[in-house]
């Protein structure tokens, strides 16, 4: 599903490369943790996959396609197959929970009939059926992250990228979020999650890819944090 061939990424003005000669193959339906200290290249890895950044060198394949060859007008179509969730949720404060999720479908031109069916269904899946009309500011951190997951998954993407999704949440809430991601993964969606959360990685025992100073230093099936 995801393949990196000798991928490097350097930012202008930075001393060292953010990612160096990375090679990895992630299969369909896999759940992969990206671990490593801050600045090790986890976020760059994620931003390269949804083409927010382009590699300085090497090739990246997503669902068999070399995304380096994609013309800019095709990038949105790549992103429709990739859901993204973040530490800071990125919800729109002036829209309700339902509107935030509907927005993701609306802006890619889904018909109203589809939106009115899929939005309540996905919010039920994430356990927020009773919060449809609430605004993000009225929700707890965990609930906001559930809305963010609903928005990322409502279009049933092939891949879900999560950049520190539990970074702002307490341990109990984090467990709930991980259960949800696990459930989504079981539907066949490939999940790539960057995290600092040792407890979660050690409990879930999934594939762990460790980055250090931009290099992949460990790739372990059913791994632990370190």
């Amino acid at each position: 599903m995801i393949k990196l061939e000798n991928v490097s990424k350097s930012y202008k003005g930075a001393d060292a490369a953010a990612l160096q000669n990375a090679n990895i193959d992630i299969g369909k339906g896999e759940f992969v943790f990206l671990v490593g200290p801050s600045g090790s290249g986890k976020s760059t890895f994620i931003r390269l996959l949804n083409k927010e950044e382009s590699p300085s060198d090497g090739r990246i394949f997503v669902a068999g396609k070399d995304i380096g060859q994609l013309s800019s007008w095709k990038v949105p179509y790549l992103r429709r197959n990739i859901g993204c969730i973040f530490q800071d949720f990125k919800l729109l404060e002036k829209k309700t929970v339902a509107e935030n999720v509907a927005f993701a479908l609306e802006v890619i031109g889904r018909p109203r009939s589809v939106i009115s069916k899929q939005v309540p269904a996905i919010l039920e899946l994430v356990g927020l059926s009773d919060k449809l009309s609430s605004f993000p500011g009225e929700l707890s951190g965990g609930e906001q992250q559930r809305v963010s997951i609903a928005r990322a998954f409502v279009n049933r993407p092939l891949i879900l990228l999560a950049d520190e999704p539990t970074g702002n949440l307490d341990p109990t809430t984090s467990v709930g979020i991980m259960r949800l991601l696990d459930r989504i993964n079981r539907t066949g969606t490939t999940v790539v999650m960057a995290t600092h959360d040792r407890g979660i990685v050690d409990t879930m025992r999934r594939r762990v890819v460790e980055l250090d100073k931009g290099s992949i230093v460990r790739d372990q099936a059913q791994g632990v944090y370190e």
Binding site: W73, P76, R79, R80, K90, L92, A104, I108, N155
Partner: peptide
């Protein structure tokens, strides 16, 4: 800006934005 960022993330086409 925030709305535009979300639109880009979920795959809204350039012209739609």
């Amino acid at each position: 800006r925030q709305e535009i960022e979300v639109m880009k993330l979920v795959g809204a086409s350039n012209w739609f934005i």
